[in-house]
């Protein structure tokens, strides 16, 4: 269990890994906007190229990047089918019974696939793959810190997420230990009907809750002993600093977004409807 890693973070030291987490959050949002700006074949080609370049820059193996698409595979398939069969256009390619496939439908399906894939891969590259959950939390806290003036407890939320991240491996280990202890007392987690299986979780969940509460109590004590009194007057050891590269990256991506918008003027091939 010592090898437990949270989320999809892929350790590395690429250009993208080194960017400031705040910059990466903004870059992630820009990337999402980019995917929605594309309307024509030409801009989609550019978007696809952008995704590829980012993938190369991040030095994350393609196999791992594609793995992130697995959860949306069904959505990809479904939207493609819907687009292929439901889009009405002028250029009928194929007809059978109630199914009509138009050229525009094929284009739409292709564009949706490129759009969703790029969206997921690019946000993955900027956020989950190259940024640790804790850095993301820090980044979010500092990006949202102006909201503190509106009495929104940004610090408290960030502290909660930090503690949750800190304790996930501990509780995972604990769960395994309790499961082993109960299996040794004859609980079978993998057989029986649904009802029996759910019931077999009780001997796990109760001890887990009890222990989590005890831990929370201990931790609260320990934090109080270490002078924790909320976010007020608190300083930070590791403060995030924007570097030139962060600004360059943001400006570059902004520029690319604008470029994509104008690329829509080239209307050869298909376009989205």
């Amino acid at each position: 269990m010592k090898g437990f890693t949270l989320g999809q973070y892929y350790p590395g030291n690429s250009f993208i890994h080194r960017l400031d987490p705040r910059a990466k959050i903004i870059l992630g949002i820009l990337a999402i906007v980019c995917t929605f700006l594309c309307k024509t074949l030409f801009s989609f080609i550019l978007l696809f190229a952008l995704t590829l370049i980012l993938a190369i820059l991040s030095r994350i193996p393609l196999k791992i990047l594609l793995r992130s698409l697995r959860p949306v595979l069904f959505i990809l398939l479904f939207t493609s089918l819907v687009n292929i069969f439901m889009t009405k256009g002028e250029n009928l390619l194929f007809e059978y019974w109630i199914f009509h496939v138009y050229e525009e439908g094929l284009w739409n399906a292709l564009f949706m696939i490129v759009r969703i894939t790029s969206l997921i891969v690019m946000t993955g590259i900027f956020l989950t793959y190259t940024t640790t959950p804790i850095a993301l939390t820090d980044g979010l806290e500092q990006l949202l810190s102006p909201l503190k003036k509106l009495h929104i407890p940004v610090h408290d939320f960030a502290m909660m997420i930090t503690i949750a991240l800190r304790f996930i491996p501990t509780l995972a280990e604990e769960t395994e230990r309790i499961m082993n202890a109960q299996r040794a007392r004859g609980v079978n987690f993998s057989s029986g009907g649904l009802f029996k299986r759910v019931r077999s979780l009780i001997p796990i969940l109760i001890p887990l809750f009890v222990s989590a509460f005890n831990r929370a109590f201990d931790l609260a004590n320990a934090m109080e002993c270490r002078c924790y009194h909320g976010g007020e007057g608190r300083t930070r050891l590791n403060v995030l600093h924007y570097k030139a590269a962060d600004f360059i990256a943001m400006i570059l991506l902004l520029g690319i977004g604008i470029g994509l918008f104008f690329a829509n003027r080239f209307t050869f091939g298909g376009m989205i409807r």
């Binding site: 640790t132 991240l165 201990d218 320990a222 590791n238």
Partner: peptide, 20 residues
Amino acid sequence: NQLVATIVEEDVAFGPENLG
């Protein structure tokens, strides 16, 4: 149950950070 942060040095910094 007494380590707060996810990185050793940030945990050590926790107390002094609170003291500002």
